[in-house]
Every structure is written in C-alpha cells, then in structure tokens.
Amino acid sequence: MAVETLERLLAEHPFFKDLKKDYLSFIVGCARNAFYKPGEFIFREGEEAQEFYLIRDGKVALEISFPGKKPVIIQTLESGEVLGWSWITPPYYWHFDARVVEPTRAIAFDGKCLRNKCEEDHSLGYEILKRFITVVEQRLQATRIQLLDLYGAS
C-alpha cells in the first residue's frame, strides 16, 4: 500500500486524532497494514512484544490460559481501539494472548522503530506517551470497575 494511503489511515484512526501531519509523515515508515482471520493469534503470552496495533475494524479477544482449563477472555477490543502496550516498557514481552474473533484489519506498528523515533524527537515521544497514558488510564479504570463485580453487588 502506498505510504500516502497508510498515512491517511493513520490520520483517520482515533488514536492519532489531531496529531500533527509532520509527525504522521515521520512515523508512517514504522507502520504496515495487517489483516487477521478469526482464530488467528496476533501474539501469544511470553513472546517478545515487537509491535502494537491500531484496530481499524474487527474484534480481538485478550485471553489468559491456565493449565487444564479453558482460556478466559478478559477483554475484547474493536474498531478504533489500540491493542498492546508491552512494546513501550522493558522487558517487552506480551502478558496475554491476542486471538482474533472477527476478521480484523489493523495498522501494525514496529515498536522498536517507533521507540527510536521517539528518542530522536522527544516532543513526538511526549505526544505518543500522552496518548498511550490515556488508553492505559481508561483500561485501568475499566479493570477497577470490573473488579467491583458490578452486576452481583447491590
């Protein structure tokens, strides 16, 4: 896919909403288009976290598996959401399996490439981290609420 088209897809994704065009052009080289079929694993727990994914459409389940038991889905992610942040923090390993539930189109980012760009330009780095912190904060909040056992308690 032409770089301009990929850049347009990046600009359209909510995660990069209002990111300066110069930054988009600077980072688009770290991105690639990706398509996953239902049942496919985008990554597995314990593998090196080399990429993260901006989901364009589809559905992905984050799962944890236990020996001798069926895996448990702890969250599903859909269109407009971000999958994976283990690429930002050492030691860069995935903590869950990501299994595709519905055909999924995504933009995959090479984590190492983006980390290098962020080191090169700290303003870009700050912009990207702010966006990730927002996602992490929303997920943390959702996880806290999930722990409250919302529907059981009165």
Binding site: K59, P71, V72, I73, Q75, V101, E102, A142, L150
Partner: peptide
Amino acid sequence: DRGISGWKGNVGVVT
C-alpha cells in the same frame, strides 16, 4: 465481565 473461549460477544464492563 469474563468470557470463555467460544464467546463471540464483547468482554469488559458495560461502561
């Protein structure tokens, strides 16, 4: 709140 493999819907709190 918690799905098992095979569940095709969403997982996460209603909010």
